[in-house]
Amino acid sequence: MERSRREFLKIAGASAAIGLGAGQVMEAVAAATNHQAAPEAQVAHQPEALKATRWGMVVDTRKIESAEQIEKMVEACHKEHNVPMLEEERHRIKWIWETHFHNAFPSQATDRVSEHLEHILLPVMCNHCENPPCVRACPTKATFKRESDGIVMMDFHRCIGCRFCMAACPYGSRSFNFRDPKPFIPEINKAYPTRMKGVVEKCNFCVERLAVGKLPACVEVSDGILTFGDLNDPESEVSKLLKENYAIRRKTNLGTGPSVYYIV
């Protein structure tokens, strides 16, 4: 009975997603399992959810003036997602953080970087790759790429903490909970779950905000440095920005296809 209910809901969800008549499938399943309880349950998106086929971000490095601007993004993100502030350097958890140009782009940095680039700090985060090596490496599909919108996600419930994804990520974008993070969260945001020790976490492009029609937390406080949108939509703001400006991505030679662009 328990099994059948679970299966039935899964089928219901799947059929709704691929646009089949969910009702028919559910009736069939309900009849087959002789299940009396609430056979007409359905799942859906929130109407106000933001949708795209491939979410992406453009960082306009020309607009970066000070480190405080980046710190504001980091703070907004880490507060939203209950990211702990650990004293121990090696246990730190970072979803988005600031770094130098030659660290973000080790193979592109030359000895004659423009003065502006040399002096500013860039925000770096998960690149939500088109072809993510972390997803390839994960033995439990705990990290996966959402086919609908290209976001590379973590299922904290399923992660076994093998850290294969951390070895696979060529951007150092993943962090591991080396200890229980809860005592180190300055102010808990009850709307978003915390994590338990022993799982990997990273930037999720604010899926929980996109679902309710809000832009990512970092974008909101970025003073226009960050632009977020659908890379597959030629009319989107990100597409327009990329059409008009020269932008680079991190370690493109590895074939990962990052979705975060930097206008330099």
């Binding site: 490496a137 599909k141 705990a142 399923r158 093998c162 850290r163």
Partner: peptide, 24 residues
């Protein structure tokens, strides 16, 4: 391998959710 896992209790997830693209 077991002592290296962050969540050893979930070890069997490797079997529950078999993932042939993972070398592990």
């Amino acid at each position: 391998i077991m002592v290296d896992l962050g969540q050893p209790m979930r070890m069997l997830n490797v079997i529950f959710y078999p993932t042939p693209n993972s070398m592990l």
